[in-house]
Design a protein around this nucleic acid. Structure first.
Lengths: 326, 326
DNA sequence: ATGAAAGCGCTAACAC
DNA sequence: GTGTTAGCGCTTTCAT
């Protein structure tokens, strides 16, 4: 098969351990020896075998990321940035999509848990108990899920929602609707209502629905009937649905109704009118999630237990002054 | 650490090899023995260690997929479908994004080549020579890249483009433009022009440009100046750019100009008007690519060397009858 | 700073 | 059908 440490050792006139050290702890090897080994290794085309290395060392140099749906345009930029970040730590990123189905999540995790040094679980649907068991088996980071004792990255919509409320209030809106597509237990609706309340803005919550385009279509009708002048949608996809629904009903955006999305996916910049939305930085999420799982693996002393990533409003063309009352 | 074959063997009163066989070749083990081993294994919580298994067997049970850009909405559905398909073969899919940068591709491949049993390279930018070298080292499947001797999946736009040409001809169009964003050596423009020629339709090629939204904006202006009544764009993103460009110029779609995209990404169904586009089935691509690499790995006799996946036109609202000549 | 020896957990020959 | 033996390629004590 391939070239091994022994081949290199023999050809360089040193022991296998020295060759190994050259690749794992070069500072422990005398410069002259090191140079020779490196020269011979590259001449022979030696590449360390990660499998053998893992078996011996117990480390895989891989990180696992489990997400609900890679086809949701919110995730690809995060995956991309995490892959880059993982590589700066010398790790490979293993992405697993559990397809939004809870039953699949455990199976999906099972399929990669033995192949990675740590796991990042995005909005896991597993029970607290299962997660605690898992955390005992392998370093774990939870994103948007809280289980006491397990390191957590919290992606907070609060700053963006506050800015959205300020934005709408400044534009004179008073009657707002939130199209909710989260699980009720997430209390997203409650949190958002409270933020709007704090700005002196009323907010009617619709849903929960599924986070689909058609949901937006439907919600637009309801919102109109409700007399709302501003609509905050669960995400950009739903917001685009709202945009379509309003347009179909002959309602002008932003002349009569303003619309705000969440996530700032590529959809937001491409809709007509371009969508005002709440942006979550994929780089920030990726960097923090990656660093947190690496610190958890190494047991680094500087490891925070809870890291927060914020959000902010990206004003575009779908929001404008509230119409004068009839 | 964890439970090993030996622990199970001891507890079940059999040898380690028997335990191993229960998990790799159960039919070679007597039913009664097998049941007992399974019972003991599950009681002890035994999970085979894939690392050790790989080291010994030489197989990783993983497949690698290298793509140019996971943030391009064309890829996520394919990644998702390939992951599912790989799992039915008992494999894990390892996705690597090389970020469209040629220099990174080799590095990206390097990072995973030793961790997988086979590699699927999407539109590789590597030289023929490098690819041949790589194919010597590991089973390889090329998508949309031809190197004699290396198994290949060809995603053919021809059927969809033919249907597009028929569609436009039936609608009375005679003056068409293709916004090209492929590398010149791909000859995509030439192939498409020939297809349109065969339908008796002229086609002016613009570009090559970068496949960006702004390209569409720009191309719209050029196409109008050109007197074109139909525009075929490199992909949906560019087509949406064209849509915006035309709208901004006060040109009605499809009243004055018809627009066709390529890929049928989620953008196509969400634009206004909804985009007529050429669809490439992610499932078909994923299934064939996965099966082809698996057959290449196993050296299966039924292995085809060249597999084709077609495409078809999805008519939506962005195409209509050509306007009457002024 | 370097080498010798042991063994990570598993599977594959080979024996019986 | 099952056990014995050996060793995949590497890292890591421990010794020198």
């Amino acid at each position: 098969m391939a070239v091994t440490v022994r081949d290199v050792a023999k050809a360089a006139g040193v022991s296998p351990s020295t060759v190994s050290r050259v690749f794992t702890a070069p500072e422990q090897v005398q410069t002259s020896t090191r140079d020779k080994v490196i020269e011979v290794a590259s001449r022979l085309g030696y590449r360390p075998d990660p499998t053998a290395r893992s078996l011996r060392s117990g480390r895989t140099e891989s990180l696992g990321l489990v997400i609900p749906d890679i086809a949701n345009p919110f995730f690809p930029p995060i995956v991309k940035a995490m892959q880059t970040r993982a590589r700066t730590h010398g790790h490979t990123l293993l992405v697993a999509d559990c397809d939004e189905r809870e039953a699949d999540e455990l199976e999906t995790i099972e399929a990669i848990v033995k192949k990675v040094d740590g796991l990042v679980l995005w909005a896991s649907t597993l029970s607290d108990g299962r997660l605690r068991e898992l955390a005992e088996e392998i370093p774990l980071v939870l994103v948007n899920r809280h289980v006491p004792g397990i390191p957590e990255l919290h992606v907070s919509l609060a700053p963006g929602v506050t800015q959205a409320a300020e934005h709408l209030r400044a534009l004179g809106h008073t009657s707002c609707v939130f199209v909710n597509c989260s699980r009720p237990e997430h209390l997203r609706g409650k949190a958002i209502r409270e933020t709007f309340d704090a700005q002196g803005l009323g907010l009617v919550e619709l849903g929960p629905y599924d986070p689909r385009f058609e949901t937006g279509l439907h919600a637009a009708t309801l919102a109109i009937a409700n007399g709302a002048t501003a609509i905050l949608a669960h995400n950009d996809l739903v917001a685009v649905g709202v945009l379509h629904g309003l347009t179909a009903a002959g309602v002008d955006v932003p002349g009569e109704v303003s619309v705000i999305g969440i996530d700032d996916t590529l959809l937001a910049g491409l809709s007509i009118p371009a969508l005002t939305t709440i942006r979550i930085s994929p780089q920030a999420v990726a960097t923090h999630a990656t660093d947190l799982i690496v610190e958890t693996i190494t047991g680094s002393a500087t490891a925070q237990h809870l890291v927060e990533v914020g959000s902010r409003l990206i004003p575009r063309a779908s929001t404008g002054p509230a119409p004068h009352r009839a």
